[in-house]
Write a protein that binds this DNA or RNA. Structure first.
Lengths: 215, 215
DNA sequence: GCAAAAGTGTTCCGACTACACCCATGA
DNA sequence: TCATGGGTGTAGTCGGAACACTTTTGC
């Protein structure tokens, strides 16, 4: 298993550099495009992902985040954006998705952003943190076969807090969300871990894990 | 106390009639306007509310709902809308807000809607139902002084299920969200009810009431 | 045999549920 | 005195939190 899981769990931090204008010259920004006359906003996202990162629709789960319309958000000219958050497999090979137009980078290294794109990323991060508590959105980050440890680490990264291993297993098991594959994952010289997969049912839950902040 | 609480808790169902086009002639629609060059989307909402209903910014709490961009959503010409959900005091005098351009009506009477506005209302309703479970958004519906019964009824309407009176009081009391005013409300020939108000603290909660659907 | 991660149970406590009767008022 | 909604307490159960040691593997 990866000892270091990329912190860049939010697909939103695909970045390109703004080259076209003095004001924002050399700054990073999120990828975007105008919505064409024959597509809706989601079609546009899929198109942009393909152009900028070679990623296809199946690789990335996207959901609408928020629409930004502050007058001065793009100081060059008036602009309104519908922002989307994208999630992909935590095990994905991010480097292989690089194109001349865009690449992934860890959230911690994303600075000097043009427009209001810092705000966009902050909101995406916050949205993700709250959604893992009452939905099964985590499935978009942990796909295929996975170990309990990976799943737990993924929750810990998103929530920013440590979880008890035994209680975590109990909760996840009780939800009947995952099944054993029978296979094991060997890694280094440690004891091999069982591999699991998501069970067929795809219900949306509220407060799935009871990790919600109470009081 | 009102024996009948308006079902139209969603401010979104302010309706005006589309007159300008054969295709949608005589149908109802939600109020909307183009975002002007010198305002952001929220400014636009405030302006529209004022024009269509005489309501001021303080009267209505608005939050962004979703942006709609389907190609055929307005069959006359391409249109992208950022929809907002508005909430106002459940005790407000809706009739007094009528203007020639718009008026409130109960959700149950809203039919024959133009564009994709039915979808918009459905989403707003759903959003509200889920938000009362993990936030204090209910404060936007029950303002000023109120009785426990009114608050409970409001939750019951939004959630669509009955709640136990004693358990409800215990939970709300335990949260320290409200305080007694010392005043009472007399209504008809029944025993007067204590009036409460929201306490100063305005924290956002998760799973405030433990009414979240579990399992 | 040791380093490193995998895997496993029990006890305690707090929170939620279910449930039924008396109170205050005006007509 | 009755009709109507206001207001209160308890017992039982369930679920979450805290907590430490044994197992398996490769080197």
């Amino acid at each position: 298993m990866n000892k270091k899981i990329p912190v860049a769990v939010v697909a939103a931090d695909i970045c390109t550099e703004v080259k076209s204008d003095n004001l924002y010259k050399g700054m990073k920004c999120l990828p975007g495009a105008l919505i064409a006359i024959d597509e809706n906003a989601e079609d546009t996202i899929v198109r942009v992902l393909k152009e900028r990162t070679n990623l296809l629709g199946d690789d990335v789960y996207v959901e609408q985040l928020y629409s930004f319309s502050e007058i001065q958000r793009d100081k060059r000219s008036r602009s309104v954006s519908i922002a989307y958050m994208g999630l992909m497999d935590i095990g994905a090979d991010y480097a292989s998705t690089d194109t001349p137009l865009g690449k992934f980078m860890p959230l911690s290294k994303v600075k000097n952003l043009a427009f209001d794109h810092k705000e966009v990323i902050t909101l995406a991060h916050k949205r993700l943190r709250s959604k893992v508590l009452y939905s099964t959105i985590i499935k978009k980050l942990v796909r295929e076969k996975f170990t309990f440890s990976l799943l737990q680490q993924c929750y810990e990264i998103v929530l920013g807090k440590a979880l008890d291993k035994r209680n975590f297993r109990k909760k996840i098991t009780a939800l009947n969300l995952i099944k054993e594959t029978g296979e094991q994952k060997k890694e280094g010289r440690m004891r091999p871990a069982m591999l699991y997969r998501w069970s067929a049912k795809d219900v949306e839950f509220y407060d799935v894990l009871g990790f919600a902040i109470r009081k």
